[in-house]
Amino acid sequence: MLQLKNIDCGYGVFQAVHDLSFSVEQGQVFALLGPNGAGKSSTIMSIAGHVKLFAGSIYFDGEDITRLHARERVAKGIAVAPEGRRLFPDLTIEENLTVGGYCQPKQREALNKDIVFTLFPRLTERLKQPAGTLSGGEQQMLAIGRAMMTEPRLLMIDEVSLGLMPKMVDVCYKAIEHLKSQGVTILLVEQNTKRALEVADQVCVLESGNAVWQGTAADAKKDPDLIEAFLGMSKETAA
């Protein structure tokens, strides 16, 4: 479904990612792992069309989308729940979801909201509450829900568990597993390595903007050098 070919990307004159290539198959959960500053967020935001590509190509369903505007990529089925959630804090939950579904026909709004509320029932209890007053976990649910309003075929979630209580992390990962079961392809950026490896099919580990390891999540768990050097875990913890 998604293929990156030798991409360089960054901000202004700063290059955050170097010569990165990987492929994501339809229906997979693909995890981008690595420390802060590794280039994970830059990678997914370049796929979304929000970070400048200096070189290389991005293909979606076999089509070169390298030069497409971000809104055109959304229309093709690519959505992102960004790091920090980036909600509209003064808008209510319901209004944030409505804004998220702007690219879909108006008559599909109610159906898509029902899908979000089935995924995150807690949001139905606070429909008229401004997003800025929600807890961190509720905001993460809303960020994912807003992305789901676009009816994505590829959903990219950046730092899903960052700053959340364990209970809320569980809720978000349960939602990821459900979406995977429904055929949604997920590109996951995560620093909670253990949780990411539990749900991922494939893994790419970045360090300083370079891919230092790629393979299956099962193989990643078995590689003690990888786990301790790049993922900040002991082999026992990963297992």
Rank of each mutant, 00 (worst) to 15 (best):
D223Q: 05
Q26G: 11
I186D: 03
A196G: 14
I186F: 04
G100N: 04
Q28I: 05
K52N: 12
G37D: 04
N6M: 08
P89C: 02
L111C: 08
L154M: 02
P35G: 01
G12W: 00
Y173M: 15
A143K: 04
S42I: 02
A211S: 14
L119C: 15
S161A: 15
M233L: 14
G101T: 01
M168S: 11
L53R: 09
A218T: 11
L2G: 02
I186E: 00
I144M: 14
Y173R: 11
G183I: 05
G10H: 03
N36L: 11
A143W: 02
Q140N: 07
M156T: 05
P130C: 08
F88W: 03
P224F: 05
G145Y: 10
V169W: 13
H69I: 05
L4G: 02
Q202P: 00
V99W: 05
L142M: 04
E138G: 03
E228M: 10
A220E: 09
Y59L: 15
L33M: 01
K222S: 10
A81D: 06
A31F: 00
Q129T: 08
V212A: 10
G163I: 06
Q140H: 09
Q182S: 13
F22I: 06
L123N: 08
Q214F: 10
A31V: 01
F54I: 01
Q182C: 12
K5M: 11
A217P: 03
N36Y: 12
T193A: 13
E159M: 07
N96A: 05
L154Q: 01
V24F: 01
L4V: 04
